[in-house]
Simulated assay, not measured.
Amino acid sequence: MPANALDIDGLTVRHGDVLAVDGLDLRIGRGETVALLGPNGAGKSTTVGAVLGLLHPAAGTVRVLGRAPADAVRAGCVGAMLQHGGLPGEARVGEVLHLVRGAYADPWPLADLVATTGTTGLLGRDVDALSGGQRQRVLLALALAGQPPLLLLDEPTSAMDVEGRRAFWTTMRDLAARGTTVVFATHHLEEADAVADRVVVLAGGRLVADGPAAQVRSAVAGRTIRLPSGRLPEPLPGVTGATRQGATVELATTDVEATLRALLAGGVPLTDLEVRGASLEDAVLSLTTTGGPR
């Protein structure tokens, strides 16, 4: 059995004159939960499309569990929720699930499938009457109907409220615990930070960072000190910028200890002071605007 769920070597994809993915090399091991991050046009959805065999690369290879993408999909090895996925109209949820499960030799048992995806109460509902979040849960159930070892998600929580997103990621953690490899593209970076074992950052179709979220965050130097707005002593060592937001001020500093000592010596009350490192959002923004390491 292949060691990796996904092997991508030198993947290059063009959309007309646009180079969407530029020589991408990526390995994803079985059972990993991996977030694909980057701005619009970074190549995330194109990469997902190539893994599903929906796009023909100009160069490079993609192997899914040791198979060509189309072969892996036909064998039921891959489940997918695409950003613009649709459902057939004039049908009930239970009918659609029955149809899709019937395409697999060993479908996920219905009772467990609907319990896992939170669709138990939706089986008798007309597809056209579903809310955005309910449609996403049904699409997840369809993606999992064949018990695929690899699940690809493209902006899976875009139509969900906060409660729905929390429930969705609880389901993803349960799937990962069962050994499912989960690869998802998202703009919700707090989700990636909380859920992913590893984040892969793309910019301009190229890989600019790959590793645990903490490692990617560490690529951004400095810290931020947040405190109630008021008169500040000058100069403040290490401070590279200050931003006032209502009743608070944020100080960007390259030497947090020196800045804190100066604030204390200047008589600034340290009540409600907060010190934090770079967020994943800060890191991704920095990496994708500067180009980052190749």
Results as ranks from 00 to 15, higher is better:
R226G: 07
D193E: 15
A75H: 05
G292R: 00
G41A: 12
G118W: 06
V239R: 09
R74V: 03
H188W: 05
E90Q: 10
G10L: 04
R135T: 14
G60C: 09
R30D: 01
G23Q: 12
A167Y: 08
A213K: 03
G49H: 01
V200G: 05
G60V: 09
I225Q: 05
R244D: 11
V13P: 02
V100N: 09
V93T: 05
R137F: 04
V256Q: 07
V138D: 10
L123K: 12
V138P: 00
A68K: 15
G179V: 14
A68H: 14
G29H: 08
V51G: 04
G267D: 07
R244T: 14
T186A: 03
W169Q: 11
V127K: 10
A213E: 00
S218M: 01
L54G: 00
T254M: 07
E281M: 01
D255K: 04
G43L: 06
T259D: 08
T253C: 12
D7H: 02
L97N: 14
A91N: 12
P156D: 04
L11T: 12
R30E: 13
G222K: 00
G85E: 15
A247F: 10
T171E: 08
R14M: 10
A72T: 02
V21F: 03
L87E: 04
V48L: 15
V96Y: 11
V127T: 15
R137S: 05
S279G: 14
P149Y: 05
G38I: 00
L54R: 13
A214K: 00
V18P: 07
V199P: 04
P148R: 12
L202Q: 02
P269S: 01
G230D: 13
C77S: 12
L152H: 07
V138S: 06
T254C: 02
G241E: 10
S229H: 14
L54Q: 08
V195I: 15
V249R: 11
A192H: 01
R125E: 11
V62M: 05
A167D: 15
P88H: 11
L273K: 04
P148A: 11
L151G: 00
P57H: 12
T46L: 08
A103Y: 13
L87Q: 04
E32I: 05
S279L: 05
G238Y: 05
W169T: 01
V239K: 06
T33P: 01
T61F: 11
C77I: 07
V100H: 03
P57I: 05
V13G: 01
H187M: 02
G211N: 13
G121R: 02
L87W: 09
C77W: 09
R206W: 09
A103E: 13
W169I: 08
G49V: 03
L207R: 15
L151K: 10
V208H: 11
C77T: 09
N4G: 02
V275L: 13
R173I: 03
R178H: 08
A196N: 06
E90I: 06
R137D: 01
A111S: 13
D193H: 02
E95Y: 07
G132Y: 12
T61V: 03
E90D: 15
